[in-house]
Design a protein around this nucleic acid. Structure first.
Lengths: 350, 350
DNA sequence: ACGGTGGGTGAGAGCGCTCCCTATCCTGGC
DNA sequence: GCCAGGATAGGGAGCGCTCTCACCCACCGT
């Protein structure tokens, strides 16, 4: 500590071997699980490792194994407030837990804009990581294609646009959750159920709108307004809806933030919630849901669980040497996508 | 792509050398800046690199250079909603930009609880990264100590508890910002200025409270209530304050979320803002500040900038071979801490 | 014209690890 | 009691790169 010039002479396998009186190969075997080593010897090696404070040199190991025990997490367009969203924080937590358990590193790649795509593609193709977990929420985004071309084992977070059937992804059951929300409103006896949709260039928003339409195929088009997943967008859309269809008695908002905005406008316009208008959101985002008045009924998804699942899917694929550039439908190497269930959480707003 | 068994034969330095008709050493020189190579030759090498799509093998490089071009970002206790906070997202963005510009990787370490500290310490001491950027917001947290013991070059985000004068850190001017907020309220003619403090185990909260006291050393202790940086805490504290000191005419909240909670209670109790009670927050967190009614006057800090600064400080230290376990006050190797300025943003609430 | 100078280049030794292959030991079967 | 054969251990090559050092050659001064 006090001597800044001491470069901390990290012990090598060689040193451990000498200390334990065995060969490098044996130490290596012990360090990597110890299969095929007499337990008495293994014990001696372990003790030596401990006494010397030996930590394997990852670089040397990668050099020969060609694995890196590292996974890239790519988050596109953090410029938008998308990244600031607690959503990613939770997914990251899930991913982190799973990777840590597998002794893998999490390399975070924040992509600022399309200019960066080439750099990211190069990085991924550069063979510095074993796989990638990619969040790219927008339709017609070229990032998924670039990544697929890199032939790196990949799992997407959220259904990607094109070729969703090719690339494995993890997404919640947006459509099913939306159906449940709308059915709940209908079961409450509501007749004029409106929907504030999310941005039409995001698959999650599209799927939720589809779910709404599944239940209400004949719904008046005037009952659907477009939001953008933000409270401000929710306010705007709610005003539009109230002007266009003042007789509405329920709103299914594409996410909780949108619902929060809508609630404010409803109060402003003197509509009581849930008496006059029932409101349901989507996401069950704690900090939002707890702060609305009344507390928001919403569709919950297990975000952290989705993160874990993504990581698990990728790691499992890596173990089996799969995922890599698997052609569509090659279920032998490519793990199947997973749609996680959602659950309606009833609070006071509906 | 279609052949999943092709292990993508990545070209090596050797291959490039052969292709360009030079030695490995020369290619290495060119790839690493090209100093001391005739430009005609360098051109030929560059062309070969391009044609073969050569990407240096990081592992092989690290093995000999003992550098990794990787920095760990340690975020402690993401369990609390701290991590979900857009705050970290923004800092990460700043850090990511800076690291990317230096061609360094960002290895994210999410620490779940004290049980994980040992693991993190081992990882950092394990020599897999060149340095660390650490966020540990709590007082009496052992993490900073553990990390300091790892002798890894480190920059802290936010003033750490003990030995803040030893470890370089980047923090905003919490105390000065608080002073400015309170002075602003005083300049508005407010006489009974209350403060809702943050959790007393976080340096930022303590510093803000200190700033309040700097300006109002004689303030009635009944005017200070304790919050916890959450809206719920803000509500609770505001109720307390109104009960204890109903004549108060201004509130300086330790952060925006707290202010949001306080605002709700003020409305509830029929106090007009800012006419009866002026309110100032801290952070200028967009999604919050925009949604309060009235829009919140607050103290802004350049969060992304702080992230960049942390990374820059660390990288600069690494270049100079410093930061590493530098004894207190060793200004030669250890970069000094940086306190970034804050700015009052006036909106309708004060 | 000749030794000196120095920029430019190549040869070669490893960095720390894994893994193939061979050497050794011990066990059991006859 | 002897050998086949499995279980363990060690030897050694080499992963792809950097870096020191020796070398080469053109050009300088005298």
């Amino acid at each position: 500590m006090t001597a800044p010039s001491t470069p901390a002479p990290r012990p090598t396998l060689e040193a451990v071997a000498a200390h334990a009186g065995v060969s490098r190969a044996t130490v290596s075997r012990v360090v990597n699980g110890g299969a095929g080593v007499r337990s008495s010897l293994a014990g001696r090696v372990l003790r030596a490792v401990d006494e010397l404070g030996y930590v394997p040199n990852r670089a040397a190991r990668s050099l020969v194994t060609r694995r890196h025990d590292a996974v890239a997490v790519v988050i596109a367009e953090p410029e938008t407030r998308v990244f600031a969203d607690p959503f990613f924080a939770q997914q990251l937590r899930g991913i982190s837990k799973e990777l840590t358990a597998h002794d893998s590193q999490l390399v975070l790649l924040l992509v600022e804009g399309r200019d960066d795509y080439a750099r990211v593609g190069r990085y991924l193709a550069g063979g510095h990581v074993d796989g990638a977990l990619v969040f790219s929420v927008h339709l017609d985004d070229e990032l998924p294609d670039i990544i697929r071309r890199s032939a790196l084992p990949t799992v997407f977070g959220g259904r990607p646009d094109r070729g969703g059937e090719c690339a494995p992804y993890v997404d919640c059951d947006n459509r099913g959750g939306a159906r449940e929300a709308v059915r709940h409103l209908r079961s409450l006896g509501r007749k004029r159920i409106a929907h504030i949709a999310g941005p039409p260039d995001q698959t999650s928003a599209v799927d939720r709108l589809d779910g709404y339409r599944d239940v209400l195929p004949e719904a008046d088009p005037a009952l659907v307004a477009r939001g953008d997943f933000t409270p401000a967008g929710g306010e705007r859309a709610m005003r539009e809806l109230l002007d266009r269809a003042p007789e509405l008695d329920a709103v299914f908002a594409a996410n909780d933030l949108t619902a929060a905005g809508a609630l404010r406008v409803l109060h402003e316009r003197g509509r009581r919630v849930p008496e006059d208008v029932a409101v349901v959101g989507f996401d069950d985002m704690e900090p939002v849901v707890e702060q609305t008045r009344p507390p928001l009924t919403t569709v919950r998804q297990d975000i952290e669980g989705m993160g874990r699942l993504m990581a698990r899917l990728l790691l499992r694929g890596l173990e089996r040497g799969g995922v890599r550039g698997a052609p569509c439908g090659d279920s032998v190497t490519a793990p199947a996508s997973v749609i996680t269930p959602t659950a309606l959480v009833r609070r006071a707003s509906a």
